[in-house]
Simulated scan of single mutants.
Amino acid sequence: MKKIINDPATVVTESLRGLEAAHSDLLRVGYDPDHVVRADAPVGGKVAVISGGGSGHEPLHGGFVGTGMLHAAVPGAVFTSPTPDGVQAAISATTGAAGALLIVKNYTGDVLNFETAAELAAAEDLDVRSVVIDDDVAVADSTFTAGRRGVGGTVLLEKLTGAASERGDGLDAVEALARKVIGQVRSIGVALTAPTVPHVGEPSFELAADEIEFGIGIHGEPGRERVKAEPADQLVERLVAAVVDDLPFADGDEVLLFTNSMGGTPLLELYLAHGIAERALAQRGIRVTRRLVGPYITSLEMQGISVTLLRMDDELTELWDAPVCTPALRWGM
């Protein structure tokens, strides 16, 4: 195993120290328990938007803390849910009378631990609500989840709810928006290679030289099927078809297309895939009105991509275009 680390036991803490050093103008980091909050937290009169999950998916979630997006993020160990005390610390550091919305990816540990923290917050008379995102169309269930997994759509959900909070929407409205987005966003991914978790020291699964895992999870969970590698045109069409057919998306829809690198895919290949996806959607009469391309929800060094579609309307377009300033996502400021 070749990685730029000192000790697997301290890799998350050391990474957080680097994040804080690089972006102290945008955020600050609390340790033991680990949590990342906006530099100006708590922001008076605004709903706190909080998310988190296992490390190894950077820039998710800490890289999205800042104006117009998350108020706080809670990192767990690599591919491991954060603890309730970390979530509770993030709530305490950011939440006032306007309340908080917790964005939770649909993994059993995440759901249980965020739910526990919300209950503790309620005991302190804080209005804290949760939504669970489950946008992965690859499988109905897995050993890591009860139902569909939360994947690429999480990035879009964090941006849109963060923008709603920034413009002053109340907790009822931010929660309703989150549920709307969850209802019309779908994702699927594919892996060419496996990630290597530092404390494990070996790839999390094996693929033959001519195999790919279609429908992979962001922790390396099994997907729909293991198939032979194929040219990009066929592979991306397979991804687009799986997402479009699930909602389903239809002729005349306007969408945001998010083409994501799982960490090890170079931009040369990612933009190639994005272009194919745009053409495949156009052939179906689906119009791409907003785009995001890059490594925004990763799986350590996994080679692979994911495709996410969100059905757009005027409200979502306005919120997507709203200014954002975080370590990983910035425009309009």
Rank of each mutant, 00 (worst) to 15 (best):
residue 217 G to W: 11
residue 277 A to T: 00
residue 263 G to M: 06
residue 221 E to H: 06
residue 247 L to S: 00
residue 243 V to M: 03
residue 283 Q to Y: 12
residue 233 D to R: 10
residue 236 V to M: 02
residue 298 T to V: 08
residue 280 A to T: 04
residue 271 Y to N: 06
residue 299 S to R: 09
residue 214 F to I: 02
residue 228 K to E: 05
residue 217 G to M: 10
residue 204 S to R: 15
residue 264 G to D: 06
residue 217 G to R: 10
residue 261 S to C: 09
residue 283 Q to L: 11
residue 235 L to R: 03
residue 235 L to S: 03
residue 205 F to K: 03
residue 297 I to V: 15
residue 270 L to C: 15
residue 268 L to P: 01
residue 225 E to T: 14
residue 294 G to T: 07
residue 283 Q to R: 15
residue 288 V to K: 00
residue 216 I to N: 00
residue 217 G to Y: 10
residue 223 G to A: 02
residue 219 H to S: 09
residue 270 L to M: 09
residue 250 A to Q: 11
residue 243 V to I: 08
residue 232 A to Y: 06
residue 277 A to D: 04
residue 241 A to L: 09
residue 267 L to Y: 11
residue 292 L to D: 01
residue 275 G to Q: 15
residue 224 R to D: 01
residue 231 P to D: 11
residue 301 E to S: 10
residue 245 D to W: 08
residue 266 P to G: 12
residue 261 S to G: 13
residue 219 H to P: 09
residue 232 A to D: 09
residue 242 A to V: 01
residue 296 Y to P: 04
residue 294 G to V: 14
residue 288 V to F: 12
residue 248 P to A: 03
residue 298 T to P: 07
residue 230 E to A: 15
residue 207 L to H: 05
residue 205 F to A: 01
residue 268 L to C: 10
residue 239 L to H: 03
residue 255 V to A: 02
residue 225 E to G: 02
residue 217 G to I: 01
residue 247 L to N: 06
residue 212 I to E: 03
residue 227 V to W: 14
residue 245 D to R: 12
residue 271 Y to K: 04
residue 208 A to M: 09
residue 295 P to Y: 13
residue 223 G to M: 07
residue 300 L to K: 05
residue 275 G to T: 13
residue 231 P to K: 09
residue 270 L to G: 09
residue 257 L to S: 02
residue 216 I to P: 04
residue 253 D to N: 06
residue 229 A to I: 12
residue 260 N to C: 03
residue 213 E to Y: 04
residue 254 E to G: 04
residue 215 G to D: 02
residue 249 F to P: 08
residue 217 G to Q: 08
residue 259 T to C: 08
residue 228 K to N: 04
residue 271 Y to G: 03
residue 218 I to L: 10
residue 268 L to G: 10
residue 261 S to I: 08
residue 290 R to I: 05
residue 250 A to N: 10
residue 223 G to N: 04
residue 295 P to E: 03
residue 230 E to C: 12
residue 278 E to F: 15
residue 269 E to I: 04
residue 204 S to H: 10
residue 258 F to M: 00
residue 268 L to K: 13
residue 265 T to H: 05
residue 234 Q to S: 12
residue 204 S to Q: 15
residue 217 G to N: 07
residue 254 E to Q: 14
residue 233 D to Q: 11
residue 271 Y to T: 13
residue 268 L to M: 15
residue 283 Q to V: 06
residue 242 A to G: 02
residue 262 M to T: 13
residue 264 G to L: 05
residue 210 D to F: 09
